[in-house]
Design a protein around this nucleic acid. Sequence first.
DNA 1: CCTTGCTATGCAACCAGTTGCATAGCAGGA
DNA 2: TCCTGCTATGCAACTGGTTGCATAGCAAGG
Lengths: 180, 180
Amino acid sequence: MALEHAILVSLLEKPGSGYELARRFERSIGYFWTATHQQIYRVLKRMENDGWVAAREVPQQGRPDKKEYSVADLGHAALSSWLHEPIEPESVRHDLAVKIRGAAFDDPAGLVREVERHRRAHTDRLAHYLAGEERDFPPAPGGPPDAERELQHVVLRGGIAYERMMIAWLDDVLATLRRF
Amino acid sequence: MALEHAILVSLLEKPGSGYELARRFERSIGYFWTATHQQIYRVLKRMENDGWVAAREVPQQGRPDKKEYSVADLGHAALSSWLHEPIEPESVRHDLAVKIRGAAFDDPAGLVREVERHRRAHTDRLAHYLAGEERDFPPAPGGPPDAERELQHVVLRGGIAYERMMIAWLDDVLATLRRF
DNA sequence: CCTTGCTATGCAACCAGTTGCATAGCAGGA
DNA sequence: TCCTGCTATGCAACTGGTTGCATAGCAAGG
C-alpha cells in the first residue's frame, strides 16, 4: 500500500487539507496515483491517529474552515523506512488490452471508435503534461540543482513518455483493427 | 471489473481449468492483467452459477482430475455487451513514482539500487516478450490474416513498447538520481 | 517409506478502494 | 428568496483483491 506514502510525499512538498490533497490527486499526483476524497479523508484520519501527520484548524474567510495537515516526525520516519524497503514492480491492469484480444471473438471493427476515444484521452493528457512542463520546468538552468524539482520533473517526463508510447501503440492497434 | 471478461477471453482462446487459467495469468494474459488462483476459482464458480461458463470433469492419468471450463452462450453474450460499452482510460498506480518524488526528502542516491532492480525486472520482461514474439509470431506472412493471432500480437507489441519505454525512463531516472 | 514438489481445488479473514449519500458554509445570479 | 455551485468534511455499505491456510492425488528420489 502506498496511498499513505503518496499523501506523505504530497504533504512534504506542501502542507494542505484533505480537500486540497484530493484536488492534487486529480492533477499532479494523480498522474501516477489516484484517490477519491473519501479515501483520502479516511486515511488521513488514521494517519493522524498514528501520529504520522498533525492537523491544524485554519479559519478562512469566504469559505468553510479547513484542517491543514503537515507531516510529523513519525510520518517522516515511516516514509523513510518505506523508501528503503524494496517494492515489487507493479502489476498491470489494462482493460483495453482485454477488449482488444476479446474483439477477435466479436467485432474487431466495432472497437475502432472505443480505441479512438482512448487515443484522444491520451493526446489530451499528453498536451496537459507538456503544458505543465513548460509552465513549471522552463529550460532556463536556474542556479544549483534542486532535488525536489528535478525529481518531480523526471516523474513528469515519465508521464510524457508513457502517453507518447500509448498514442503510438493505439495507432498500431487502430491499423490492426482496420484490417478486419 | 474485467477479471470475468479476461477469463472469458482466455477461455475463448482455449478452454481450460482454473489451474491452467492461473498459469496463463502468470504469463501471456498476465502481461496486462494479474490474478491469483484463489480469485480465479472464486470468480469461475460465480460465472458457472450465472451460466457464463460450463464445466466438464476431465479425468487425467498421472495427475489429479480437473474441471475444464468453456464459454457458454450467456458468457459470450456478456463479453459482447461489455465490448460494446465504453470504459474509462485506466487509472495508474506507480509506487515507484511515489518513491522517486519522496526521495527528495530522504536520500536520492539511496534509491539508485532500487531503481536498478526495477530496470532489471523490465529488461527481463522485455527479453521474455521478445522471445515469445519470435516463437509465436514469426515474420513469415503465412496466408490470410487471422484476427485472433493479429490482435494477440498487437497486444504483445504493446507490452514490448511499454517495457522499452520504462527502461529508457528508468535510465533517465538513474541519471537524475545520480546528480545528488 | 518418507519427503519433496508439482498438479489441482478451495475456504475464510482481511484490507483497500469504490459508490452512494449526507451535511454545512458561503458566494453569486436568477 | 431560492437555486446553483464551489469549498470542505465525513459515514456506511459494498466489492474486488490479497493473504494465509487446508486438502488431496500422484511422481520421483533418497
